[in-house]
């Protein structure tokens, strides 16, 4: 099953979408507002996978399709992605949300810290609202959403989380669609942590700066 303009044809009668949007409205009214007025023509084409899940693909400039999740079993793919990480930091930043499979895989690993979900593409995020029950994640105060926003506002989100350690977990099939956005995101997170650590632990920070000098030579 392939649905071109899937968003346009599905929104009006999609209960999952409406339920998700309602929950998002409570959590982030501005984002919900942006999504509700999006152009209905999505660049992403969704289709059913071999095991009955949904995947999405996008056509690149050469006209070749590129998938953002497995076309066979995206749940298993996400599980494999999540199992590689040691989830011991108080916060993690997931770069690239896609249709959200890997957020679910992370949550299944019973991670109890804060999760910052960063998605550059609001259209792709809108697609995820159509197929997955996201309301519990929107209601969870430990999951923070940063979708399609101006990166100059990311630091204030990071400040509100108060974590001195944030693991950055890219989901490459999605994050490589917008490399500059996610590269800048990574830089902002590092700058934030750097400043915070210098301020809170000046002695250790001074020694580490000296170590970086040593490594340079």
């Amino acid at each position: 099953m392939t649905s071109k303009n899937g968003v346009a044809s599905s929104i009006a009668r999609n209960d999952v979408y409406l339920h998700n949007l309602k929950a998002l409205q409570v959590r982030d009214g501005e984002l919900a507002g942006h999504i509700s007025i999006l152009d209905a023509h999505s660049r992403y084409i969704t289709e059913k996978t071999h095991n009955g899940s949904i995947t999405a693909k996008i056509r690149d400039q050469q006209g070749t399709f590129r998938y953002i999740h497995s076309s066979i079993d995206p749940v298993e793919e996400a599980r494999e992605w999540a199992r590689h990480f040691v989830l011991e930091t108080p916060a993690i930043a997931v770069l690239g949300f896609g249709l959200g499979y890997h957020l679910f895989a992370l949550r299944k690993r019973s991670y109890s810290g804060s999760i910052i979900v960063i998605e550059a593409d609001i259209q792709l995020f809108q697609s995820s609202l159509l197929y997955r029950e996201l309301a519990p994640s929107f209601q969870d105060n430990k999951v923070h959403w940063f979708v399609g926003k101006d990166l100059s506002t990311l630091e204030s989100l990071l400040c509100s989380i108060h974590s001195d350690r944030i693991a950055i977990l890219p989901f490459l099939p999605v994050s490589t669609l917008h490399p500059e956005y996610y590269e800048t995101t990574t830089g902002i997170i590092h700058e934030y942590l750097y400043k915070k650590r210098l301020l809170e632990n000046p002695s250790l920070s001074r020694d580490i700066l000296q170590l970086t000098e040593c490594l340079q030579h």
Binding site: H190, L193, L204, S205, L209, T212, L215
Partner: peptide, 22 residues
């Protein structure tokens, strides 16, 4: 790390070392 430092990404080196030491 040397590549990052040449490209003004010193904070990444600092943070990775900080995490490793931690």
């Amino acid at each position: 790390y040397r590549y990052w430092m040449k490209n003004a990404k010193d904070s990444r080196v600092f943070n990775e070392l900080y995490d490793l030491i931690d």
